[in-house]
Each structure stands twice: as structure tokens, then as C-alpha cells.
């Protein structure tokens, strides 16, 4: 699962000034941009501008962290899933998120950073991850809402990343997207069972939609006019569509799905615009988005604490496995010598 536009530091590989076309700074930059424009993929050992490398490390690692932290809100219900079928589906889904984190850390490592360093940044609170995972999952319906809305939004973001200019990232995303295809269906099916169930279940489902709708729209990041590094990332083909474009696509796809469930989207201004052929929707409260990004969300502290605890509790295990491997190779050498 992923969100766009976590922290907007513009990169300087190509200098841009308002109104002017980007000015290329060196012959290498120029050649690099030509390769990108020709839809050539960039591979790990190829020359690349520092800004491109930094942007990718930041984006891929944030994406990886989001997958790993994203295991927690859903993991919260694994032991309480109400049927064995739901239990294995949820378990497999949360496991997939872990796998996706792993593929993405691997892709980031091809850029010359170690996974350990990246994990360290997450645990120290220095690295960002998708804010959506700082919301709580107090009811079972939240598991449905996450699968349906959060994964739905993530798919909108992730499918274009399969064509990202950086080869290892694009390949990881192909794998991720293929595996995620069941996630959204799992969530929607779960919501459907609730929406067509008892009055209490339906109430649960509506409450979850009420809480997850706006945060899901925020997953696409700030509006295009507020997004500092969009233009450069588009030029580098790290990003293919703008935040607002993808957000609109998500709304258009999701509103009829909510109608089918018989649930109400919590936006009084939502209406279909015959002129544009799209749904028009109300203004997003960016104050909330920014506060959660700053660390003031309902679960920011819990999420990082949980990751730190897992890491610290596992230290003796990682050390012991490394020590055993070292002993084993020493013994093998001795035997050979």
C-alpha cells in the first residue's frame, strides 16, 4: 500500500524556475534525461543524478516502511477474525504486506543503502511512512474499509509505478501489484457481508466508511498546486500522474461501489458532474493531514513503539543466528584445512 507526497523536498538534479522550462546542469544530466525520455529503464549501476538517487531512496524506503507499519492496524484483528475463512485471508494479506516491504527494501538496497540503515531511520522516527496507518482499527469493519478503500487508493498509486523509470522499483511494483489483486476484493467482500448483514453489522460498516473516507482521499497527497516535487518526479518518470488526477480516478471508481453497498459517503458536497463526467467532492481538511504527518495522529506513537519493540526483542535472535553461521563456517574451514 502506498501514499504519495509524504515530504516535499524538491530535488535539484534539474533546476526549475517558475514559468521556465527545466534547465539541465551537465552533459551527463542531459544524456540521462534523454534516456528517460526514450523510456529506457535505469539500472542500479548506471550513472544517475544524485537527486534522482536520493528521491528514489526516499520514496522506495517510505513505501517499504508504509508496508511494514501497515501490517499493524490490520494485524490488530488477525486473532479476532470472526471465521476461519476470514482469518486465513487476513493473515495471508498482512503477510503479503510484509513481503511487499521486503521487495521494496531490496529495491532500495540496489541504490547503495542497507536495509538496516533504512530500518534504523524508521525506528528513530526520522523516516516517514504513509499517514493512513496512524488511524486506529477499533472494529472488524475497519478491516473491510482498509481493504476496500486504502488498498483501492494504493492500487491507483501503485499501478503507474510499475512503469517507473528505475528498473528494480518497477519490477518490485509489478510483483506487488500482482499480489495485491486479491486484497481489495477481500476488503470489499467483507464490507458486503456487513452491509447486507444485521443492523449492528451495517452500523459498523457505515462507521468505518465514515472514518476512512477522508483519510483515503488524503493518501494521494497534497493538491497539485501545493506539491513541490511533482514536476521533477514527472520529468524523471518516477511519477506518471499527478496527485489530483489519481484522487479523481479513485473517487470515480469508489462512489458506485459505496452505492452498491448501500452505504453513504460522508461528503454532503459529493455529486456527479454531467459536464465533466466525474464526481465532484468537498474540500479536504489538510490541517488534519499535516498534523498527522507531524506525528499527532491517533496511533503514530503506538505504531513506532510496536516496530521498535519487535526490533529490540528480536536483537538476541538476529545476533545468535549470525553467531551460529560464523561458528559453522569456522568449523567447515577447520575440517577442510
Amino acid at each position: 500500500m502506498y501514499t504519495q507526497g509524504l515530504d516535499g523536498k524538491a530535488e535539484r538534479g534539474v533546476q526549475s524556475s517558475p514559468g521556465a522550462s527545466p534547465r539541465l546542469v551537465s552533459a551527463e544530466d542531459l544524456h540521462f534525461q534523454e534516456r528517460i525520455d526514450a523510456e529506457e529503464k535505469i539500472e542500479p549501476r548506471d550513472w544517475m543524478p544524485d537527486g534522482y538517487r536520493r528521491t528514489l531512496v526516499r520514496q522506495i524506503s517510505q513505501h517499504a516502511h508504509s508496508e511494514i507499519v501497515g501490517m499493524l492496524p490490520e494485524g490488530n484483528w488477525i486473532t479476532r477474525a470472526p471465521s476461519l475463512r476470514r482469518k486465513v485471508a487476513l493473515l495471508a494479506k498482512v503477510q503479503d504486506e510484509g513481503g511487499h516491504g521486503l521487495y521494496l527494501y531490496s529495491a532500495a538496497e540496489t541504490l547503495g543503502v542497507s536495509r538496516d540503515e533504512l530500518v534504523g531511520q524508521l525506528l528513530s522516527g526520522k523516516a516517514k511512512y504513509s499517514s493512513i496507518f496512524n488511524y486506529p482499527t477499533p472494529s472488524w469493519a475497519d478491516i473491510g474499509a482498509i481493504g476496500w478503500l486504502v488498498d483501492g487508493a494504493a492500487i491507483m498509486n501503485q499501478v503507474p509505478l510499475c512503469r517507473c523509470s528505475y528498473g528494480p522499483y518497477a519490477r518490485a511494483m509489478v510483483r506487488v501489484c500482482r499480489e495485491e489483486s486479491f486484497h481489495q476484493r477481500q476488503g470489499y467482500e467483507l464490507m458486503l457481508a456487513l452491509a447486507t448483514g444485521t443492523a449492528e453489522q451495517k452500523r459498523m460498516a457505515q462507521a468505518a466508511l465514515d472514518r476512512w473516507w477522508w483519510p483515503s482521499l488524503m493518501m494521494f497527497g497534497p493538491s497539485d498546486d501545493q506539491s513541490a516535487h511533482s514536476a521533477q518526479n514527472m520529468a524523471w518518470k518516477i511519477k506518471r500522474f499527478s496527485n489530483d488526477e489519481l484522487r479523481q480516478r479513485f473517487v470515480d471508481a469508489t462512489v458506485p461501489q459505496a452505492e452498491f453497498l448501500g452505504l453513504t459517503i460522508p461528503d454532503p458536497e459529493l455529486r456527479f458532474d454531467d459536464q465533466t463526467g466525474h464526481y465532484a467532492f468537498g474540500a479536504i481538511d489538510w490541517t488534519e493531514f499535516n498534523e498527522i504527518l507531524k506525528g499527532n495522529g491517533p496511533c503514530n506513537r503506538e505504531r513506532i513503539e510496536a516496530r521498535r519493540k519487535a526490533w529490540d526483542d528480536g536483537a538476541w535472535v538476529r545476533e545468535a543466528a549470525a553467531a551460529h553461521a560464523a561458528k559453522r563456517s569456522r568449523r567447515a574451514l577447520k575440517k577442510a584445512g
Binding site: 521486503l102 531490496s106 538496497e109 510483483r175 543466528a321 553461521a325
Partner: peptide, 12 residues
């Protein structure tokens, strides 16, 4: 080639 991972030893 499908990707990479970390492990303490070859069997792992």
C-alpha cells in the same frame, strides 16, 4: 532472478 533477501546462512 526474482529479487533479494537477507539471511544469516545459506540454508536460511
Amino acid at each position: 532472478h526474482v529479487g533479494s533477501l537477507h539471511a544469516a546462512d545459506a540454508r536460511m
